[in-house]
Simulated assay, not measured.
Amino acid sequence: MKQDLVLQTKIGREYVLEKFLKSIGKKGKIKEPCSVRLSGMNREEFEKLWREKAQALQIDVCWVDPHMKLTDFRLFATDMDSTFLNLETLDEMAAFVGKGDEVSRITELTMQGKIRNYAESLTARVKLMAGVDASVVDRLIKFHIKPNPGAESLVSALKKAGIPMLLVSGGFSCVTNVVKERYGFTHVISNELEIKDGKLTGRVTGPFGTPIIDGRGKISYVSAYALQHGIELNELITMGDGSNDIPMLEAAGLSIAWHAKPAVRPHAKYAFDFAPLSGLLALFNQ
């Protein structure tokens, strides 16, 4: 099957796409957020001659079904930290109290897949926060919750298409519930950060004391929601950046490794290293 070539880069860098199109002798209409679709391209020739130059110019390259539409899909699920939001919430809270280096070191190793047991990693990181005043959570929510570029446009398009949105996070309900309400997610699944007497106890569990939500927990929740609503996994879109997102990236009909760790990219249908969250919409011919 002939495929279209979708080229994307960061919002506001249309001039980069124009420069690249000129260099390969092609013309195309640059659309929001910052993308262009080319039909009739020779894939083998492009990959051989132009892929590396596109990468050097910070342009994402995606080969897509020219007939694929957003309405082909019926469910959307995304990770929160460093995917929908532009931060790792636990790392940020730890930085407030001088424990940032200790916690972020474990986070990075976990997201890269070098620490493979997510539950053990999260338990170790939260334990470092024992005794910290719970006001760090309020501070995070009040001043630091900010979505990544393109979030609002993506959410708007999904709502318009009537596609339920799941926020699937290894983070904490005290944050995910706020994000759910602010951006209109349909449902959320995340872990519970234990707080007693106004302090973090250093303990974490899954919802209602269940096992911690890890990669298997994420896809189990998404699969259960899909089954309950008569949705096939090939009608699912997922986005994530870390190793604990791999199971739901692999299972979905369409998946995006969004600004992801190198070990994660091969497990998704597409990898966006530069495009905004709304770059997902450029993959659809509509």
Score class of each variant (00 low, 15 high):
Phe284Asn: 09
Asp65Met: 05
Val132Pro: 06
Arg13Trp: 05
Asn177Trp: 01
Leu5His: 09
Gly12Ala: 04
Asp60Pro: 09
Lys218Met: 08
Ala77Arg: 11
Leu277Ala: 02
Tyr221Ala: 02
Asn117Ser: 14
Gly171Trp: 06
Ser169Leu: 02
His67Ala: 14
Phe274Lys: 00
Ile30Arg: 04
Lys261Ala: 00
Lys196Ala: 06
Leu21Thr: 11
Gly198Ala: 02
His67Arg: 15
Ala251Met: 14
Gly171Thr: 00
Ala124Pro: 10
Met111Tyr: 07
Leu167His: 07
Leu158His: 11
His187Leu: 13
Leu166His: 08
Asp245Glu: 08
Asp273Ala: 07
Ile106Arg: 03
Lys27Phe: 13
Asp101Gly: 13
Lys261Tyr: 00
Ala268Lys: 02
Ser173Leu: 10
Ala275Lys: 01
Val61Phe: 08
Leu281Phe: 07
Gly171Lys: 04
Glu18Gly: 14
Lys53Met: 12
Val16Met: 15
Ile189Arg: 08
Thr110Val: 08
Gly198Leu: 03
Ala119Tyr: 02
Ser39Gln: 14
Met239His: 04
Thr123Val: 10
Arg74Pro: 13
Val64Trp: 03
Ile246Phe: 03
Ser278Trp: 02
Ala95Asn: 10
Tyr183Lys: 00
Thr110His: 07
Leu281Gln: 10
Gln228Pro: 06
Ala157Gln: 15
Ala157Pro: 12
His187Lys: 14
Gly253Cys: 00
Asp4Lys: 05
Leu87Tyr: 05
Gln112Tyr: 08
Glu181Thr: 11
Glu250Tyr: 03
Leu87Gly: 07
Tyr221Trp: 10
Ala77Pro: 14
Ala224Cys: 12
Asp133Lys: 11
Met41Phe: 06
His67Met: 14
Arg182Val: 09
Phe274Arg: 02
Arg51Glu: 13
Gly242Tyr: 04
Gly253Asp: 06
Trp63Val: 07
Gly184Gln: 03
Tyr225Glu: 05
Ala95His: 07
His67Leu: 13
Arg13Thr: 07
Val103Asn: 05
Gln286Tyr: 15
Ala95Arg: 11
Thr176Arg: 00
Val188Met: 10
Ala54His: 02
Ile212His: 05
Leu254Trp: 01
Ala252Lys: 01
Glu194Phe: 01
Ser173Glu: 11
Asp245Cys: 00
His259Ile: 03
Asp133Pro: 05
Val204Glu: 07
Asn244Thr: 13
Asn117Val: 12
Gln3Gly: 07
Glu235Met: 00
Asp91Pro: 13
Leu249Trp: 02
Gln8Pro: 04
Leu283Phe: 05
Glu120Pro: 06
Glu18Met: 11
Asn117Met: 07
Gly162Asn: 12
Gly100Leu: 01
Ala275Arg: 00
Leu236Gln: 01
Glu44Gly: 12
Ala268Glu: 06
Asn148Ile: 01
Thr205Phe: 03
Pro247Val: 05
Thr110Glu: 09
Glu152Asp: 13
Phe84Arg: 14
Arg182Asn: 13
Ala161Cys: 13
Leu233Tyr: 08
Lys53Gln: 15
Asp4Arg: 00
Pro266Glu: 06
Glu152Leu: 08
